[in-house]
Design a protein around this nucleic acid. Structure first.
Length: 158
DNA sequence: CCCTGATTCGC
DNA sequence: GCGAATCAGG
């Protein structure tokens, strides 16, 4: 087994394509695979898998016959968080990340956190296995790590 | 300000 | 080929 940087193996590329075709955003793909957003975009560009040009344009193209939705409530990333946590009413539950429940792929359950636990030098892939809420791929602790590391991803290097 | 994807360019 | 930096748009 190569002890160096795993870079883009066929496994990751498969995930990349699958998630891309699934309609996931580049940041979501990046968080799931475990690389930076730019890495995902760069790889997609190299594979000529870019969606034409920019995503923003098709969004504008979609609003046909829009009867002026009365919703004037400004929503930001809070909407995303609310979707993840199931309800906006959820308090700040920063569950401690238990690495004692880590399990293999076969041992994963619907409620198992799918955060990849990969140690340098170990080839057997394991997952967090912690309790994740329904419809949520990660536990509360890993969800925050996956979807919002910090301000602008300055500590995302590595 | 925040976000998004796309391209550039040093490595 | 890779991805951080940068660019371009919303």
């Amino acid at each position: 087994m190569p002890a160096l940087s795993p870079t883009w193996t066929v496994e990751r590329i498969e995930l990349l394509k699958r998630h891309f075709e699934a309609g996931l955003s580049c940041r979501e793909i990046a968080a799931d695979i475990g690389v930076s957003r730019n890495a995902v975009i760069g790889k997609l560009s190299r594979l000529n898998l870019t969606r034409g040009r920019s995503v923003d344009e098709r969004r504008l193209q979609d609003r046909t016959s829009a009867p002026r939705a009365p919703k004037a409530v400004p929503r930001l990333q809070f909407e995303m968080l609310a979707t993840i946590y199931g309800e906006a009413d959820a308090p700040v539950v920063t569950g401690p990340i238990d690495d004692a429940n880590r399990c293999s792929l076969m041992e994963l359950r619907e409620y198992s956190c799918r955060w990849p636990i990969s140690t340098p030098g170990a080839e057997d892939f394991r997952f967090c296995g912690n309790a994740a809420q329904d419809g949520q791929p990660y536990c509360t602790g890993h969800s925050r790590l996956a979807y919002r590391p910090n301000s602008r991803g300055r500590l995302m290097r590595g």
